[in-house]
């Protein structure tokens, strides 16, 4: 049971990584002068759309929490709408947190907001897919000893590594190397992406490594 779960987890994660790689290389076939650094905003949009799409598709195909009972269409619609609202709220709250961390308030608003959107796709979208719009469940997953499945464990790892990547991504900004990627928010978005990818790679491996020690209270 667990081993098959881990295998599925690995494949889904590989797909997610693949989607990010695609978002880097595919647009250059259609768009002229596309590069991550120069047309950063375009890349941010494409990347977040790609990752969201792949996440949704994977969620519908894999159905990690299969125990969810059948429900009416209206329930699904409200759930979907709630998810959208949560996503938007997370974007705005990330934006606010960035500003509180020192991002310029008025200049570069679009950049900051798109960065918030990207970070939301890396963190909030998987949470919404897996846990649904349920704050209590989220808090449970992100507190110590609160995870109940392989999926939640991997979700915890990827989300935390995305945050840590973003956090570390801010470090090069004050350095005086004068590189194009040191400009706000490029280093942070790159940090977030690297963190996300690292989380995707690490989490199946880590879970596989510790599969003996890991016990989840529901299975």
């Amino acid at each position: 049971m667990k081993d098959t779960d881990i295998k599925r987890l690995l494949y889904t994660h590989l797909l997610c990584i693949f989607s990010i790689i695609l978002s880097i290389f595919i647009p250059s076939l259609f768009l002229e002068n596309f590069s991550i650094l120069e047309t950063h905003l375009t890349w941010l949009c494409i990347c977040s759309v790609c990752v969201t799409a792949v996440n949704l598709v994977l969620y519908l195909v894999v159905k990690p929490n299969a125990s969810s009972r059948r429900s009416s269409l209206s329930y699904k619609v409200t759930r979907f709408l709630k998810c959208c609202i949560y996503f938007l709220m997370s974007c705005f709250s990330f934006h606010i947190i960035f500003v509180l961390y020192g991002a310029p308030l008025i200049e570069l608003v679009l950049e900051t907001f798109l960065f918030a959107v990207t970070l939301s796709t890396f963190t909030t979208v998987p949470c919404l897919c897996l846990l649904g719009p349920n704050i209590k469940a989220w808090l449970r997953v992100f507190s110590r000893n609160g995870v109940t499945s392989v999926w939640e464990n991997s979700l915890q790892i990827t989300t935390i590594s995305s945050f840590v990547g973003t956090w570390l991504g801010a470090f090069p900004i004050p350095l005086d190397w004068e590189r194009p990627w040191q400009v706000w928010p490029i280093s942070c978005t790159l940090g977030a992406t690297f963190g996300y990818v690292a989380g995707l790679v690490i989490s199946p491996l880590w879970i596989y490594w510790n599969r003996k020690q890991l016990t989840y209270k529901n299975n």
């Binding site: 961390y101 020192g102 801010a170 900004i173 004050p174 350095l175 005086d176």
Partner: peptide, 14 residues
């Protein structure tokens, strides 16, 4: 790093 000393305030704010 000299830049981090010059911009040490950023470290603390962060």
């Amino acid at each position: 790093a000299s830049s981090f000393i010059e911009e040490e305030h950023q470290t603390w704010y962060f």
